[in-house]
Amino acid sequence: MGEVVVVTSGKGGVGKTTTTANIGTGLAALGKKVVLVDTDIGLRNLDVVMGLENRIVYDLVDVTKGNCRLRQALIKDKRFDGLFLLPAAQTKDKTAVNASEMQNLCESLQEEFDFVIIDCPAGIEQGFKNAIAGAHKALVVTTPEVSAVRDADRIIGLLEANNLRDPKLIINRIRPDMVKRGDMMNIEDMIDILAIELLGVVPEDEQIVVSTNRGEPVVLDIQSRAGQAFRNIAKRLLGEEVPLINLERYEEGLVNKLKRFLGFKE
C-alpha cells in the first residue's frame, strides 16, 4: 500500500506546485510508482509545470462524478513510465469535489502507487479540506517571509487538528546572500518558530523559471542547486539520511574567493 502525501502552505505562491512536481518526478526517477493529484480546482497548474497540458482528456471532477474511469483520467508522464498526473478540473465550481470523494480517490490510488502526492490549493477553505482528507502525511512549504511563516503556523495547527501529526517543513526560495547579511530569516529561525521537523531547503534559483517555461521539472537538471535540493528531499522521503546541501558554499563572497585563489584562505 502506498503513501499519500499532501503538499500545503496556507499562503499562495510559495511553491506548492513546484514542490509537488519536483518531488514526484524525483521519486519516479528513483524508480517509484508515483501519481500527482492536482486539487487546485479552477486554477489548474501542475499540468503545465509537468509539461503535460496537451494530453488532458479527463480530470479529477470527471473521476469523482463518474464521467470516466480513474484509469482513463491518469496522464502518463513523458519521461518516466511510473509517473502519472491526475489533473484538476477547470470548472468554476470549487465545491465540485467533497472530502469523502477525495478520501475514496486516495484509497483507490494508494492501491496502485507507491506515492500519491497531492498538490493543495492556497487557503484554508474547502479546497484545503479536500486535499488533506485522504492524506497520511503532510508537507508544509514556506518561504523566509513573515507572512508565509505565519500562514504555515496556522496550517500546521489545522493539520494537527485533523490528525495529520508531525508535518514536515520545506523552506523554499532561501537566498544565502540575504541570510548572510542578516536580511532574511535563516533555517534555524524558522524551525525555532514553527517547531516542526525540517525535510529540506530549496534555494531561490532562476533555473526553476527556465524549467517551468519548458515544462521540465528542475529536479532533472543536474546543474541546478534547486534540482539538487529536490533530489535530496525525494531521497529523504524514502527514509535515506541526506545532509542539507551546503548553502554556505554558494554565498561565498568575491573577496573570499580571491583570498582562496591567492592562497590566503583554506
Binding site: 513573515v146 505565519r150 541570510v179 542578516g182 536580511d183 530569516m185 535563516n186 518558530i193
Partner: peptide, 14 residues
C-alpha cells in the same frame, strides 16, 4: 539587518 525584526514580529503575531 531586517531579519531580527521579522523574527520578532512573527513571534508576537503568533
Amino acid at each position: 539587518g531586517s531579519k531580527n525584526l521579522a523574527k520578532e514580529r512573527l513571534r508576537l503575531v503568533l
